[in-house]
Nucleic acid binder design. Structure first.
Lengths: 353, 353
DNA sequence: CTCCTGGACGGTAACGTTTCCAAGTTTTAC
DNA sequence: GTAAAACTTGGAAACGTTACCGTCCAGGAG
């Protein structure tokens, strides 16, 4: 019995023409009703609406977007690993704002390489999206100039194009974290850096400024540049630095994943260490407060990052906003949880569990 | 200086007609070249390709999708909170597969209520997506029957429609978790349940079956149904149950967020408890291994869930797959980390480490 | 009664692509 | 050398919508 799945009944969806016929009106009238219904007699509009309901008509957004000059009611979002809560939060927030205005959000597939990013963006542009939100990779983004759609960069700026950008105060955050550690009396603070994104550079800058302001010199051997931005790399680096003859007394991890790696390394080293270093991370993360030593972090309102970007883009797309490119910077705050405290190195002043 | 942002140069993007003119060929020829170039003389094709490059032509996917019967090259993904790593993983994985076939993924904005879900889905359908991947909310999904696009449900089935479904072996997972606890000698195991999704019901079923197989009766007062599926609700419930005169010696949390709540509650209670209960969670989560007591969980390959769904949907959309609705079930495994072990307090029936 | 104004409506041309069909051209077969 | 077949190519129709331009009618002004 070569059972076959009943191929799609293929009932073509009703169109405005069907509605017009059913309601006994012209095509233009249906269009007017569908778009707010100005200039249509109430009685006529009623009839049209009735026909729409009976037929289950739904406007074909594709045909609508085909009209000259019109863009679709979709925004594109291009970002890295959705598995990173940072990106996921941005996605969720922008989705929410876009949805409120009846816009959908298209996610391009995002590989890691700049070339893949470019391809993904062009694919998205060919879909006539009304605007692009991009968390840019490194590499030149000048090719976006001629795309004909508004662009908002999120979290970090891109080179080669002057567009709106929404980001957090990375330098301020880096400074905040460092000042906190310095205030605890630490003078040998290591900073673990992910591959040089713009954001990381600014955080490092804050780190240096805080040192300068405190009159303490940065030990360059404690400025650790990782080859990759994942937890494993941070774990390895932490391992290495803590086993040096003169290890740091505090560590600033410049990224949520890096913080995880640092903590993992410290957990493994455990009693091998003379004293547990203080730790501050950049960006909050789930369960940070439930670890053996709750982690102090510098945090910002990531969701607001996504919301602002979406709002700005929607305004640009509708033409409501024609200001020069904006630069929105969100503040960072410190969430103290204990890991930033000076360790009671020898004596176990540690809280009982 | 009333500075105004240079309004879009509004250079209309070149069309196939422009390409045709430039290459001195007909429109149909350009179309053929763009779509693989069968039936075009090599020399002609060269000329067309040259014109495409010079003009920077890019096919307008919107116009393309307008043709009769044609759907766009986008898949829709409808799911809950992207901030939940479970959903984020599905999104990432499906995005990856779709991207490999040149498909984009549209995320509908998803409120929590079933009504919002329906609205979002219809919005997506009106965008002529080639297929829908849905992590369904409760409520009838019969309205999808006439949508005219293939549908794949992810993680749980929906009522009112017979469609493909990709899910994990919830019952098996529930059983596995429970058997593990029973094997440790626990006889009073609490199970914390999120609001009754299908998945939760199956996990409970596995819980009961494991008990029956072991000849142990389930204490119904330890089957705890939460009003909400978040960590806070689980925290509160755990608090309550652990302070009863006869608390459970083990807890099975039916969801990653619930596991977090359970652990939080146990952490707070701390020394108030006679002995720390064993804990097993459903679904792995980041940092589970770094908590004061590393958490044992039942886990499955969530990414594979997303990948399978996307693959299946693409096949359906292309017409390559006309089998009856499929039901793909992925296995669950146990990841032992310690929290599932019997607490050493009373009798040391515990396995030597 | 005529003229004019304005609102309500119908019809049609686009938008950019794909898919036909017919016409033109070459190649193949006899 | 001719007929048929195969391959190329150009052109036009269609997809569903919106924007525009008329037409029609009612009602008010003159």
């Amino acid at each position: 019995m070569p059972e076959t799945f009943p191929t799609k009944p293929e009932v073509p969806r009703p169109t405005m023409i069907d509605v017009a016929r059913r309601a006994g009106v012209g095509l233009g009238t249906v269009s007017r009703v569908v778009n707010g219904g100005h200039g249509v007699r109430d009685e006529t509009a009623q009839r049209v609406r009735a026909a729409i309901d009976e037929l289950g008509f739904q406007r074909n957004e594709v045909a609508r977007a085909l009209r000259p000059g019109k863009k679709s009611t979709s925004l594109a979002l291009v970002l890295g690993d959705l598995t990173n809560p940072f990106y996921a939060t941005i996605a969720k927030a922008s989705l929410e704002i876009a949805g409120q205005s009846g816009f959908a959000v298209v996610l391009g597939s995002v590989d890691e390489d700049p070339e893949g990013e470019k391809r993904a963006i062009q694919e998205l542009v060919s879909r006539q999206v009304a605007g692009l939100m991009i968390v840019p990779d490194q590499g030149d983004h000048a090719f976006l100039e001629g795309a004909g759609v508004p662009v908002v960069f999120v979290d970090r700026p891109a080179t080669g194009i002057d567009a709106d950008i929404v980001m957090v105060d990375n330098e301020g955050g880096g400074r905040l974290a460092t000042e906190h550690l310095l205030a605890q009396g630490h003078e040998r603070i290591a900073i673990i850096l992910a591959p040089s994104y713009y954001t990381i550079g600014r955080r490092l800058r804050g780190f240096r400024r805080a040192h300068r302001a405190a009159g303490i010199e940065v030990d360059e051997s404690l400025v650790i540049q990782l080859p990759e931005g994942n937890a494993e790399a941070a774990e390895k680096a932490t391992h290495e630095v803590m086993l040096r003859p003169d290890p740091p007394t505090a560590i600033f991890a410049s990224t949520n994943f890096l913080t995880e790696g640092v903590l993992r390394a410290l957990g493994e080293l455990g009693s091998e260490l003379r004293s547990e270093p203080a730790v501050v991370g950049f960006d909050d993360f789930r369960l940070a407060d439930m670890l053996p030593t709750p982690v102090t972090v510098v945090a910002s309102d990531i969701a607001e990052l996504g919301r602002s970007a979406a709002r700005l883009l929607l305004d640009r797309a509708s033409g409501a906003d024609t200001r020069p490119p904006q630069r929105i910077v969100l503040p960072c705050g410190l969430i103290e949880r204990g890991s930033g405290e000076r360790a009671p190195d020898s004596a176990a002043k540690r809280k009982p569990r």
